[in-house]
Simulated scan of single mutants.
Amino acid sequence: MYGLEKTPKEITLIFGKRVTQLRKERKMSREDLANRSGVPASTLRKFEQTGMISLESMLKLVKVFNRLEEFEKLLQPNDLESKRHLFDD
C-alpha cells in the first residue's frame, strides 16, 4: 500500500524526533516546552519516544516553535483551478 513512501507511523516518529531536536536546539527542557505549550510533560515524553500524540497537542507544540502556519497550509488546495477565483474580475 505504501511502497517506497513512509508509513504514517514512520512519519509520526520523525515528527517526534524533530520536536526533540527543535527543543534541544533552543536549550529547552521537556518541562520548559510543556509549560510553554500547555502539553503535559508526560505526553511530550511519550511523543518524543513513540511519535504518538493528539493533533491538538501537536499543534500546541508546533506553535511554540512558530511553525503553526506551515501546518495550516498542509491541506490547502494546491492546484491552479482552485486558485482561479483569485484572479477573476
Results as ranks from 00 to 15, higher is better:
13 L>Q: 06
82 S>Y: 13
22 L>E: 09
39 V>C: 02
12 T>S: 11
84 R>P: 10
56 E>D: 13
57 S>W: 02
40 P>R: 03
12 T>Q: 07
66 N>M: 10
38 G>S: 09
46 K>V: 03
82 S>C: 06
42 S>D: 09
31 E>P: 00
31 E>G: 01
78 N>P: 08
64 V>C: 13
3 G>E: 08
34 A>M: 06
51 G>R: 00
85 H>W: 14
80 L>K: 15
49 Q>H: 03
56 E>G: 12
87 F>G: 08
27 K>H: 10
12 T>G: 00
86 L>P: 06
48 E>S: 01
25 E>N: 06
66 N>P: 09
68 L>P: 07
54 S>V: 01
74 L>A: 14
33 L>T: 03
41 A>M: 03
85 H>K: 15
18 R>T: 06
28 M>N: 01
76 Q>H: 15
52 M>C: 00
75 L>P: 09
52 M>L: 09
46 K>G: 06
71 F>E: 12
1 M>R: 10
77 P>N: 13
5 E>L: 11
58 M>A: 13
47 F>S: 12
7 T>Q: 01
14 I>K: 09
60 K>N: 15
13 L>V: 04
75 L>E: 14
17 K>W: 04
70 E>K: 06
53 I>F: 03
30 R>T: 04
37 S>K: 05
27 K>M: 04
12 T>A: 04
15 F>A: 13
77 P>C: 08
31 E>L: 01
33 L>R: 00
60 K>P: 12
18 R>I: 07
30 R>N: 02
86 L>S: 04
31 E>K: 04
22 L>M: 08
59 L>K: 08
11 I>D: 07
8 P>G: 01
45 R>C: 04
74 L>Q: 14
21 Q>W: 03
34 A>R: 06
89 D>W: 02
18 R>V: 07
85 H>G: 03
7 T>I: 08
70 E>I: 03
46 K>C: 07
76 Q>L: 15
54 S>A: 01
38 G>K: 00
89 D>N: 11
50 T>N: 11
67 R>C: 10
64 V>T: 08
1 M>H: 02
58 M>R: 03
88 D>N: 14
12 T>Y: 02
63 K>S: 15
26 R>V: 11
10 E>Q: 12
39 V>W: 08
50 T>L: 05
58 M>P: 04
21 Q>V: 08
38 G>V: 00
42 S>L: 04
26 R>P: 03
4 L>E: 15
39 V>Q: 01
81 E>R: 14
86 L>N: 10
57 S>F: 01
